[in-house]
C-alpha cells in the first residue's frame, strides 16, 4: 500500500466535507503527492478505490493539472515563468541558459535527482519579471547569473 493509514483518515475527513465525495479528489491528490512525490498508476488505483471511482478518472485529473505529476520528480521543482511579460524581459533566454547549465531540457530531471526543471504559463508575478519558483519560494527580478546561483545552492 502506497497511501498510509493516517493519509487515508485525512482523505475520508475531506470527503465528508463535500456533497459528492468526489469533490475531495484534489485535496486527496495533494495529500498523497506530498508523501509520494508523484501519482503512479498504483497510487491512482488506491485513490480510486478510496473514492469508489475508476482509476482512469484519477489520471484524468492528474494530467489536467500542472502541479500533479504522473512520473517521479526531482527533490526540487524549478518552474520558470515564460508568459508574455516574463518573455519580454528575457525569460526564454533564462530558461535556455538554465537548461544548458543543468544539462537537461525543460520537463526533465537531473540525473542525480536534484532538480526538475519546467516552464510555467504564468506565476502571477509579472511586475517582477523574469522570475522562477523553487518549490514554494518565488525568486524575482532575475538574470541568468542570479538564477544559476539559486539553483547551485539547492541540495
Amino acid at each position: 500500500m502506497v497511501i498510509s493509514d493516517a493519509a487515508r483518515e485525512k482523505i475520508r475527513a475531506e470527503m465528508a466535507k463535500y456533497p459528492k465525495p468526489e469533490g475531495a479528489l484534489l485535496a486527496a491528490l495533494h495529500l498523497v503527492q506530498k508523501q509520494t512525490g508523484h501519482i503512479s498508476g498504483e497510487t491512482a488505483q488506491e485513490i480510486a478505490d478510496l473514492f469508489g471511482i475508476h482509476p482512469i478518472r484519477v489520471m484524468e485529473v492528474v494530467t489536467f493539472y500542472n502541479m500533479f505529476y504522473d512520473e517521479p520528480q526531482g527533490r526540487h521543482h524549478v518552474h520558470v515563468c515564460t508568459n508574455l511579460p516574463c518573455s519580454l524581459r528575457g525569460a526564454r533566454e533564462l530558461l535556455r541558459g538554465l537548461e544548458a547549465h543543468l544539462g537537461i531540457e525543460a520537463g526533465e530531471t537531473t540525473k542525480d535527482g536534484r532538480v526538475t526543471l519546467a516552464h510555467e504559463e504564468c506565476l502571477g508575478a509579472c511586475g517582477y519579471a523574469p522570475m522562477l519558483r523553487v518549490d514554494e519560494t518565488y525568486h524575482e527580478n532575475l538574470d541568468l547569473a542570479a538564477a544559476k546561483r539559486i539553483l547551485d545552492e539547492l541540495e
Binding site: E60, T63, Y65
Partner: peptide, 14 residues
Amino acid sequence: REVPKTGELAVFNR
C-alpha cells in the same frame, strides 16, 4: 462510463 459502465476512455491533459 454511462452505458456499458466500463469507463475505458478518458481525456488526458488540458
